[in-house]
């Protein structure tokens, strides 16, 4: 992989991001709604205040003017100013980022930890009892939507058993082990909901990828050389089978961020997803724009990461 390749890929990303921002801005500007609608139904607030606020935040300008304004500010690193919170959008996003990364990161790790061994084991003994069970569970797992499993877990662990809290608090005071334990306790349910959902679909991917590879001639060759079965699987099969899996994981990352929105809402996890939802509900366009733009960047970034990982997993793939 050369440095040139990287630079070229990054340069290509610029027009893509530009196009994305135009479409996003256009759609948001054309969508109905008013960030100050709550003022409208309150008879104690004179309508002039609403008009003044609209004028102040430039909501009455034509769309193209607003877009250019936004673009110019963005190029200077100014993400915009939230209508409803009256603070900078980047601060808002940065506040939410650690929680999102912790919850989504750990759920992805759990998904991978579960999926790879089970998928590989299932593929090495296809159509065995273990394979059947793993398949069935995976099927159930990714058929159940997260809002359903989330509520189910709350009913079971919070209400019936009273073991786990179902309100996530990002800023638990305290330190040391009890603090850590509190954090783990409140993360168990959201992380499990997300991790199992992801893991379930990954299992099927890993299984089919390993099945494809395991029948190839070079695996037979490796076996005939007398290398132990274990080494054959880890060194020769899994490494090659991982290529499509890596693509899947990488490309799924942005979707996971989006898919976490529902889970974040159920467990009140203050992540980027819940920021996006509340911004959309209150028509806070600069925040919606900021968050969706972050998502767009993530898509492009993870695409790039997937491509780079390919080269590392399979040196035959060249970057040109």
């Amino acid at each position: 992989m050369s440095r040139q390749y990287l630079i070229r890929r990054l340069l290509i990303a610029i027009p893509a991001l530009f196009g994305i921002s135009v479409v996003l801005f256009g759609v948001l500007a054309m969508a109905p709604g008013d960030p100050f609608e709550e003022l409208a139904t309150n008879p104690a607030v004179p309508p002039e205040v609403r008009q003044a606020l609209r004028a102040k935040f430039g909501l009455d300008d034509p769309i193209w003017q607003r877009y250019l304004h936004w673009l110019w500010a963005m190029l200077q690193g100014d993400w915009g100013f939230s209508f409803t919170s009256r603070m900078d959008v980047d601060t808002l996003i940065l506040q939410r980022l650690p929680t999102t990364l912790i919850v989504i990161g750990s759920s992805q790790i759990i998904a991978i930890i579960i999926a790879i061994p089970i998928g590989v084991l299932a593929a090495t003994k296809p159509y065995s009892v273990f394979d059947q069970i793993a398949n069935t569970i995976a099927f159930i797992g990714f058929s159940l939507p997260t809002f359903f499993t989330g509520l189910l877990l709350i009913l079971l662990f919070s209400i019936q058993l009273d073991w786990l809290p179902f309100v996530y608090r990002a800023d638990i005071p305290g330190s040391g082990l009890p603090w850590l334990w509190e954090h783990i306790k409140q993360s168990i349910m959201p992380v499990m909901v997300l991790g199992l959902f992801q893991g379930a679909s990954l299992v099927r991917y890993v299984r089919s990828a390993v099945l494809d590879v395991i029948k190839l001639d070079y695996v037979t060759t490796a076996r005939s050389k007398g290398i132990g079965e274990r080494k054959v699987i880890t060194k020769h099969v899994v490494r090659n089978a991982l290529i499509p899996v890596v693509t899947l994981v990488a490309l799924q990352m942005p979707i996971v961020f989006g898919g976490a929105i529902v889970t974040e809402q159920i467990f009140r996890v203050p992540g980027i997803g819940s920021l996006l939802i509340s911004a959309m509900l209150s028509n806070d366009t600069p925040v919606v724009m900021g968050v969706t733009f972050v998502f767009a960047c993530l898509v492009i970034l993870f695409n790039l990461i997937a491509d780079i990982l390919y080269g590392w997993l399979d040196p035959r793939i060249a970057f040109r």
Partner: peptide, 15 residues
């Protein structure tokens, strides 16, 4: 979000 908005162009607002 449409009904309670003050969007002048939208015919479905409550005002």
């Amino acid at each position: 979000s449409v009904y309670f908005s003050s969007d002048v162009a939208n015919p479905d607002t409550y005002t």
